[in-house]
């Protein structure tokens, strides 16, 4: 059952999940949720600097999946089936274009982007520092008034999707 806000922007939903494709390399170290509040870390292997935060998060028990280029693949096989069962925080590192696509799609499942970090992370200059920041942010309550962005980030970006606060009437 979609909520009123989920209908505003978004797509797909309402159908059962199918077989999964492989997204190597993937580190599904432990059950989802073992890495604190983060249900999944998703990264694009073609984005420079995405691998190290992925490894760091896998070591800390976060389920990690990767893909190459087309964000439609993890959307179809991982994210949409997961969010259809209920909103859960998901972080990732992709290009800005992929994040834009995910924002458009996630809204219908009550999810919105709560954090965007241009990579490499400012000050430290280290992409792997994004892992700590994403984990910390995932433990925070989502802000209110989250909406999909209409602007596309350029270059690699670390992001966090959180359930939309104050959803529905």
């Amino acid at each position: 059952m979609m909520t009123r806000r989920q209908i505003l922007v978004g797509s797909s939903g309402g159908l059962a999940a199918g077989a999964a494709w492989a997204f190597a390399p993937t580190w599904n170290v432990s059950a989802p949720g073992a890495g604190g509040d983060l249900a999944l870390f998703l990264f694009d292997r073609s984005v420079h600097g995405a691998l190290l935060p992925g490894r760091a998060l896998a070591r800390r028990g976060v389920a990690v999946r990767s893909f190459h280029g087309d964000v439609g693949v993890p959307w179809l096989e991982v994210l949409e089936p997961m969010w259809r069962r209920g909103p859960r925080p998901v972080a990732g590192i992709t290009d800005g274009g992929a994040l834009f696509c995910l924002e458009q799609l996630a809204w219908r499942h009550g999810m919105a982007c709560a954090l965007r970090l241009a990579l490499p992370v400012a000050r430290s200059g280290r992409s792997e520092d994004a892992a700590d920041m994403l984990l910390r942010a995932a433990g925070q309550p989502p802000g209110s008034g989250l909406r999909p962005s209409t602007d596309m980030a350029r270059g690699p970006v670390a992001w966090l999707f959180q359930p939309v606060g104050g959803n529905g009437r």
């Binding site: 280029g69 439609g72 693949v73 696509c101």
Partner: peptide, 19 residues
Amino acid sequence: LAKVHKPTFGIPSLSVFNF
């Protein structure tokens, strides 16, 4: 699957909106 142009094989994609 990882390398093909997916719509050629009847599989939906978002690659154009990525790139």
